[in-house]
Design a protein around this nucleic acid. Sequence first.
DNA 1: CAGTATCCCCTTCGATACTG
DNA 2: CAGTATCGAAGGGGATACTG
Lengths: 111, 111
Amino acid sequence: MAYNIPVEATLDVIGGKWKVVIMCHLIKEERRTSELKKIMPTITQKMLTQQLRELEQDGVVNRKIFDQVPPKVIYSLTKYGWSLRPILDAMCAWGEHHIETVEDVEKNREV
Amino acid sequence: MAYNIPVEATLDVIGGKWKVVIMCHLIKEERRTSELKKIMPTITQKMLTQQLRELEQDGVVNRKIFDQVPPKVIYSLTKYGWSLRPILDAMCAWGEHHIETVEDVEKNREV
DNA sequence: CAGTATCCCCTTCGATACTG
DNA sequence: CAGTATCGAAGGGGATACTG
Protein backbone atom coordinates (compact mmCIF):
# COMPACT_ATOMS: atom_id res chain seq x y z
CA MET A 1 0.00 0.00 0.00
CA ALA A 2 0.89 3.64 -0.27
CA TYR A 3 3.06 3.39 -3.31
CA ASN A 4 6.13 5.56 -3.57
CA ILE A 5 5.53 5.91 -7.29
CA PRO A 6 2.39 5.11 -9.26
CA VAL A 7 4.05 2.55 -11.49
CA GLU A 8 4.23 0.27 -8.46
CA ALA A 9 0.48 -0.14 -8.76
CA THR A 10 0.98 -1.44 -12.28
CA LEU A 11 3.59 -3.87 -11.05
CA ASP A 12 1.24 -5.14 -8.37
CA VAL A 13 -1.18 -6.21 -11.09
CA ILE A 14 1.10 -7.50 -13.84
CA GLY A 15 4.24 -8.21 -11.84
CA GLY A 16 3.77 -11.92 -11.29
CA LYS A 17 6.18 -14.33 -12.89
CA TRP A 18 3.76 -15.52 -15.58
CA LYS A 19 1.08 -12.86 -15.65
CA VAL A 20 2.28 -10.93 -18.66
CA VAL A 21 2.74 -14.10 -20.68
CA ILE A 22 -0.74 -15.31 -19.78
CA MET A 23 -2.28 -11.96 -20.66
CA CYS A 24 -0.42 -11.80 -23.95
CA HIS A 25 -2.06 -15.07 -24.89
CA LEU A 26 -5.49 -14.02 -23.68
CA ILE A 27 -5.28 -10.75 -25.58
CA LYS A 28 -5.30 -12.73 -28.81
CA GLU A 29 -8.14 -15.05 -27.88
CA GLU A 30 -9.83 -16.48 -24.84
CA ARG A 31 -8.47 -19.86 -23.78
CA ARG A 32 -9.38 -22.80 -21.66
CA THR A 33 -7.00 -24.11 -19.02
CA SER A 34 -5.62 -26.99 -21.04
CA GLU A 35 -4.90 -24.70 -23.97
CA LEU A 36 -2.94 -22.32 -21.78
CA LYS A 37 -0.93 -25.19 -20.41
CA LYS A 38 -0.19 -26.39 -23.92
CA ILE A 39 1.05 -23.04 -25.22
CA MET A 40 3.05 -22.48 -22.04
CA PRO A 41 4.97 -25.75 -21.84
CA THR A 42 7.17 -24.81 -18.91
CA ILE A 43 4.53 -23.55 -16.50
CA THR A 44 3.29 -25.92 -13.84
CA GLN A 45 -0.35 -26.57 -13.09
CA LYS A 46 0.09 -24.95 -9.71
CA MET A 47 1.58 -21.74 -11.03
CA LEU A 48 -0.95 -21.49 -13.82
CA THR A 49 -3.87 -21.71 -11.43
CA GLN A 50 -2.24 -19.42 -8.92
CA GLN A 51 -1.45 -16.68 -11.39
CA LEU A 52 -4.90 -16.91 -12.95
CA ARG A 53 -6.52 -16.60 -9.52
CA GLU A 54 -4.59 -13.47 -8.76
CA LEU A 55 -5.42 -11.96 -12.12
CA GLU A 56 -9.04 -12.81 -11.47
CA GLN A 57 -8.96 -11.23 -8.00
CA ASP A 58 -7.48 -8.10 -9.51
CA GLY A 59 -10.37 -7.96 -11.96
CA VAL A 60 -8.15 -8.39 -14.98
CA VAL A 61 -9.21 -11.86 -16.04
CA ASN A 62 -12.64 -13.41 -16.30
CA ARG A 63 -13.26 -17.05 -15.44
CA LYS A 64 -16.22 -18.69 -17.12
CA ILE A 65 -17.14 -22.12 -15.83
CA PHE A 66 -19.16 -24.53 -17.92
CA ASP A 67 -21.12 -26.85 -15.69
CA GLN A 68 -20.42 -30.11 -17.42
CA VAL A 69 -18.36 -33.29 -17.19
CA PRO A 70 -15.51 -33.23 -17.89
CA PRO A 71 -15.13 -29.69 -16.57
CA LYS A 72 -14.49 -26.81 -18.89
CA VAL A 73 -13.22 -23.38 -17.89
CA ILE A 74 -12.52 -20.49 -20.19
CA TYR A 75 -10.36 -17.52 -19.29
CA SER A 76 -10.60 -14.16 -20.99
CA LEU A 77 -9.61 -10.57 -20.34
CA THR A 78 -12.12 -8.32 -18.66
CA LYS A 79 -12.75 -4.80 -19.87
CA TYR A 80 -10.46 -3.64 -17.10
CA GLY A 81 -7.88 -6.13 -18.31
CA TRP A 82 -8.08 -4.66 -21.79
CA SER A 83 -6.99 -1.32 -20.36
CA LEU A 84 -3.57 -2.93 -19.97
CA ARG A 85 -3.37 -3.54 -23.68
CA PRO A 86 -1.02 -0.64 -24.48
CA ILE A 87 1.47 -2.07 -22.01
CA LEU A 88 1.16 -5.61 -23.30
CA ASP A 89 1.44 -4.49 -26.90
CA ALA A 90 4.54 -2.46 -26.16
CA MET A 91 6.14 -5.36 -24.30
CA CYS A 92 5.35 -7.86 -27.04
CA ALA A 93 6.60 -5.54 -29.75
CA TRP A 94 9.83 -4.83 -27.92
CA GLY A 95 10.42 -8.54 -27.36
CA GLU A 96 9.90 -9.35 -31.01
CA HIS A 97 12.26 -6.65 -32.07
CA HIS A 98 15.06 -7.33 -29.60
CA ILE A 99 14.84 -11.04 -28.94
CA GLU A 100 18.15 -11.93 -30.61
CA THR A 101 20.01 -9.27 -28.65
CA VAL A 102 18.53 -10.38 -25.37
CA GLU A 103 19.24 -14.04 -26.06
CA ASP A 104 22.89 -13.27 -26.72
CA VAL A 105 23.31 -11.16 -23.61
CA GLU A 106 21.58 -13.64 -21.33
CA LYS A 107 23.63 -16.46 -22.76
CA ASN A 108 26.85 -14.71 -21.83
CA ARG A 109 25.61 -13.97 -18.37
CA GLU A 110 25.29 -17.68 -17.63
CA VAL A 111 29.04 -18.10 -17.96
CA MET B 1 16.92 -19.42 -23.55
CA ALA B 2 14.73 -20.30 -26.49
CA TYR B 3 11.70 -18.34 -25.43
CA ASN B 4 8.28 -19.78 -26.04
CA ILE B 5 6.98 -16.32 -26.81
CA PRO B 6 8.98 -13.18 -27.59
CA VAL B 7 7.59 -11.20 -24.68
CA GLU B 8 9.65 -13.43 -22.40
CA ALA B 9 12.73 -11.65 -23.71
CA THR B 10 11.26 -8.38 -22.51
CA LEU B 11 10.59 -9.89 -19.12
CA ASP B 12 14.16 -11.09 -18.89
CA VAL B 13 15.33 -7.51 -19.14
CA ILE B 14 12.75 -5.59 -17.11
CA GLY B 15 11.36 -8.42 -14.99
CA GLY B 16 13.37 -7.81 -11.83
CA LYS B 17 11.61 -6.72 -8.70
CA TRP B 18 12.84 -3.12 -8.85
CA LYS B 19 13.99 -2.68 -12.43
CA VAL B 20 10.94 -0.90 -13.78
CA VAL B 21 10.87 1.48 -10.84
CA ILE B 22 14.55 2.29 -11.26
CA MET B 23 14.15 2.87 -14.97
CA CYS B 24 11.11 5.07 -14.46
CA HIS B 25 13.25 7.31 -12.33
CA LEU B 26 16.19 7.29 -14.72
CA ILE B 27 13.95 8.14 -17.65
CA LYS B 28 13.26 11.49 -16.06
CA GLU B 29 16.86 12.27 -15.19
CA GLU B 30 20.13 10.56 -14.50
CA ARG B 31 20.76 9.89 -10.83
CA ARG B 32 23.55 9.04 -8.47
CA THR B 33 23.29 6.11 -6.12
CA SER B 34 22.38 8.07 -3.02
CA GLU B 35 19.62 9.87 -4.90
CA LEU B 36 18.10 6.60 -6.05
CA LYS B 37 18.17 5.30 -2.52
CA LYS B 38 16.45 8.44 -1.30
CA ILE B 39 13.60 8.32 -3.80
CA MET B 40 13.18 4.57 -3.26
CA PRO B 41 12.97 4.47 0.53
CA THR B 42 12.12 0.78 0.84
CA ILE B 43 14.85 -0.68 -1.36
CA THR B 44 17.94 -2.02 0.35
CA GLN B 45 21.45 -1.14 -0.65
CA LYS B 46 22.00 -4.70 -1.70
CA MET B 47 19.00 -4.87 -4.00
CA LEU B 48 19.70 -1.49 -5.51
CA THR B 49 23.22 -2.47 -6.47
CA GLN B 50 22.14 -5.88 -7.67
CA GLN B 51 19.37 -4.62 -9.91
CA LEU B 52 21.56 -1.86 -11.30
CA ARG B 53 24.29 -4.36 -12.11
CA GLU B 54 21.88 -6.55 -14.03
CA LEU B 55 20.49 -3.60 -15.92
CA GLU B 56 24.04 -2.61 -16.74
CA GLN B 57 24.92 -6.11 -17.93
CA ASP B 58 21.88 -6.07 -20.16
CA GLY B 59 23.07 -2.82 -21.69
CA VAL B 60 20.10 -0.85 -20.48
CA VAL B 61 21.80 1.33 -17.91
CA ASN B 62 25.05 3.23 -18.05
CA ARG B 63 27.30 3.58 -15.02
CA LYS B 64 29.56 6.60 -14.95
CA ILE B 65 32.19 6.62 -12.23
CA PHE B 66 33.82 9.84 -11.09
CA ASP B 67 37.27 9.17 -9.76
CA GLN B 68 37.13 11.21 -6.61
CA VAL B 69 36.80 11.01 -2.85
CA PRO B 70 34.16 10.52 -1.67
CA PRO B 71 33.10 8.34 -4.60
CA LYS B 72 30.44 9.48 -7.02
CA VAL B 73 28.58 7.28 -9.47
CA ILE B 74 25.89 8.37 -11.88
CA TYR B 75 23.43 6.04 -13.52
CA SER B 76 21.58 6.83 -16.71
CA LEU B 77 19.72 5.01 -19.45
CA THR B 78 21.66 3.93 -22.50
CA LYS B 79 20.29 4.41 -25.98
CA TYR B 80 19.23 0.79 -25.87
CA GLY B 81 17.54 1.47 -22.57
CA TRP B 82 15.61 4.31 -24.15
CA SER B 83 14.10 1.83 -26.58
CA LEU B 84 12.10 0.57 -23.60
CA ARG B 85 10.52 3.96 -23.13
CA PRO B 86 7.15 3.10 -24.75
CA ILE B 87 6.77 0.28 -22.23
CA LEU B 88 7.78 2.41 -19.27
CA ASP B 89 5.54 5.26 -20.34
CA ALA B 90 2.58 2.94 -20.74
CA MET B 91 3.20 1.37 -17.35
CA CYS B 92 3.57 4.72 -15.60
CA ALA B 93 0.47 6.11 -17.26
CA TRP B 94 -1.62 3.10 -16.36
CA GLY B 95 -0.44 3.26 -12.76
CA GLU B 96 -1.32 6.92 -12.45
CA HIS B 97 -4.74 6.32 -13.89
CA HIS B 98 -5.65 3.21 -11.90
CA ILE B 99 -3.78 3.60 -8.64
CA GLU B 100 -6.88 4.06 -6.48
CA THR B 101 -8.53 0.97 -7.92
CA VAL B 102 -5.45 -1.15 -7.41
CA GLU B 103 -4.94 0.08 -3.86
CA ASP B 104 -8.50 -0.90 -2.96
CA VAL B 105 -8.25 -4.34 -4.51
CA GLU B 106 -4.90 -5.13 -2.96
CA LYS B 107 -6.13 -3.97 0.42
CA ASN B 108 -9.01 -6.42 0.32
CA ARG B 109 -6.72 -9.23 -0.73
CA GLU B 110 -4.77 -8.93 2.48
CA VAL B 111 -7.83 -9.95 4.48
C1' DC C 1 -10.35 -31.70 -17.54
C1' DA C 2 -9.66 -28.46 -13.85
C1' DG C 3 -8.20 -27.85 -9.53
C1' DT C 4 -6.38 -28.68 -4.63
C1' DA C 5 -3.15 -30.26 -1.20
C1' DT C 6 1.52 -31.67 0.51
C1' DC C 7 6.17 -31.83 0.79
C1' DC C 8 10.36 -29.56 0.37
C1' DC C 9 14.20 -27.50 -2.09
C1' DC C 10 16.51 -23.52 -3.17
C1' DT C 11 16.51 -18.96 -4.53
C1' DT C 12 15.60 -14.46 -3.06
C1' DC C 13 15.97 -10.86 -0.07
C1' DG C 14 16.77 -8.29 4.33
C1' DA C 15 19.91 -7.17 8.10
C1' DT C 16 24.32 -6.33 9.44
C1' DA C 17 29.06 -5.45 9.30
C1' DC C 18 32.96 -4.00 6.84
C1' DT C 19 36.22 -1.64 2.95
C1' DG C 20 38.26 2.01 -0.05
C1' DC D 1 29.52 7.84 -0.71
C1' DA D 2 29.43 3.51 -3.14
C1' DG D 3 29.94 -1.04 -2.80
C1' DT D 4 30.98 -5.98 -1.11
C1' DA D 5 30.43 -10.03 1.93
C1' DT D 6 28.06 -12.99 4.86
C1' DC D 7 24.35 -15.17 7.27
C1' DG D 8 19.80 -16.61 7.98
C1' DA D 9 14.80 -16.30 7.44
C1' DA D 10 10.97 -16.41 4.24
C1' DG D 11 8.49 -17.90 0.65
C1' DG D 12 8.37 -18.72 -4.27
C1' DG D 13 7.78 -22.41 -6.96
C1' DG D 14 8.51 -27.49 -8.59
C1' DA D 15 7.10 -32.47 -8.22
C1' DT D 16 3.77 -35.47 -6.97
C1' DA D 17 -0.47 -37.42 -5.62
C1' DC D 18 -5.24 -36.98 -5.18
C1' DT D 19 -10.48 -35.29 -5.96
C1' DG D 20 -14.88 -34.21 -8.35
